[in-house]
């Protein structure tokens, strides 16, 4: 069970099944048996496209398409599933976000595929935030970041949980010091998850 505004931190060695678990939550995979409920209904009861925009999975390796930073950030607004009444954010808002994530040297016209891995990881995080999902599945979102950027991402994870009420499931192979009041901690090993509180 995970409520809005809660943070679940799942730690465990690599290969223990953490990413597979996250992929079950947004139906990139379906479980062999058992059921996952979202708002009391099984995941299969939702339209998969809408479900994935509600429960967003941020991949471990940040993927940028061969276009500008702006095109990459606005990617969620390009598909038919994007609601007609939601306007994509303007350049001013995008620039503010870049600044907040310590990406001031990056312009919106830069080729996103030429960024460093740490920059891409932050851009991918911003892209996820712009989608404003109800549930955010974060797969090692800080693995390639220096301590300063790591602090920025942590701050924003906490802000999404406490400020916007996003339910967050965070997968890390090391510990995540969280100031979110409602944080649950789990440990995963060989595909088995256990409460580590």
């Amino acid at each position: 069970m995970l409520d809005a505004g809660e943070l679940a931190v799942i730690s465990g060695p690599s290969g223990s099944g953490k990413s597979t678990l996250l992929r079950l939550f947004n139906r990139l995979l379906d479980p062999g048996k058992g059921e996952i409920l979202y708002n009391g209904r099984p995941l299969a009861g939702y339209g998969v496209v809408e479900l994935r925009r509600d429960i967003y999975y941020l991949q471990q390796a940040p993927v940028m398409i061969q276009k500008t930073v702006r095109d990459n950030l606005l990617l969620p607004f390009r598909f038919r599933a994007a609601k007609k009444d939601t306007l994509p954010p303007d350049d001013e808002k995008l620039l503010k976000l870049l600044e907040r994530f310590k990406l001031s040297g990056v312009t919106l016209e830069d080729d996103a595929t030429r960024m460093s891995i740490g920059q891409k990881q932050r851009l991918a995080f911003i892209r996820a935030m712009l989608l404003a999902p109800q549930v955010m599945l974060l797969d090692e979102p800080m693995s390639s970041l220096d301590p300063v950027s790591r602090a920025v991402v942590r701050e924003n994870v906490e802000r999404m949980a406490t400020g916007e009420g996003t339910a967050i499931i965070l997968v890390m192979h090391y510990n995540f010091a969280s100031s979110v009041a409602r944080t649950r901690r789990y440990h995963m090993e060989n595909g088995v998850i256990s409460d580590s509180q």
Binding site: N26, V49, R53, Y56, Q59, A61, V63, I65, F79, L131
Partner: peptide, 13 residues
């Protein structure tokens, strides 16, 4: 594969 899954995660058909 990663790029396709990114699109799918963002709600692309």
């Amino acid at each position: 594969r990663d790029e396709i899954e990114l699109y799918l995660c963002l709600g692309a058909r």
